[in-house]
Amino acid sequence: MKTVHPPRLAMWLLDRFGRDDEGLTGDLVEELDRGRSRAWFWRQVVAAIALRRRPRDPRPLHLLDDSELPIPGPEPRREINLTASPIYGIGGLGLVALALLISIMSPTSWLVGLAILLNGALLGALLGYVRWRRTTRGAAPPSVLERK
């Protein structure tokens, strides 16, 4: 009997974006081998990916006689910012694109940013120097930068 090979792209998509379950992947391959069409296979793969990415249904299974129990709301989604991007929803490539856009649309804004950075560095150095003077001399010099 001739073995039917599943579409490579569909398999890659399922491995990459679908659920990590070789039972499901094996079942799909087996069904294709049993005579299901490629269109059926693609439909199953797309649905499996969509179901994997859909947030879990917070509805509890205990539907009746649970009136005394508090019904938990949906859990807040906890997202880890792996790109360490300061802007929500924009990753590494997004930041590069943003920098390119700023460079094209308004190159002078880089100078403003640079001036802000330099001012911050100067202020930091000044504060550090004042603190160092205070610790080395013992007495607190009058300062306009620090609260008493």
Partner: peptide
């Protein structure tokens, strides 16, 4: 409850659950 079986060639070497 679920358990994992042996991989089979018709499933591309993947096990049944």
């Amino acid at each position: 409850t679920s358990s994992i079986g042996e991989p089979t060639p018709t499933r591309g070497g993947r096990a049944k659950r």
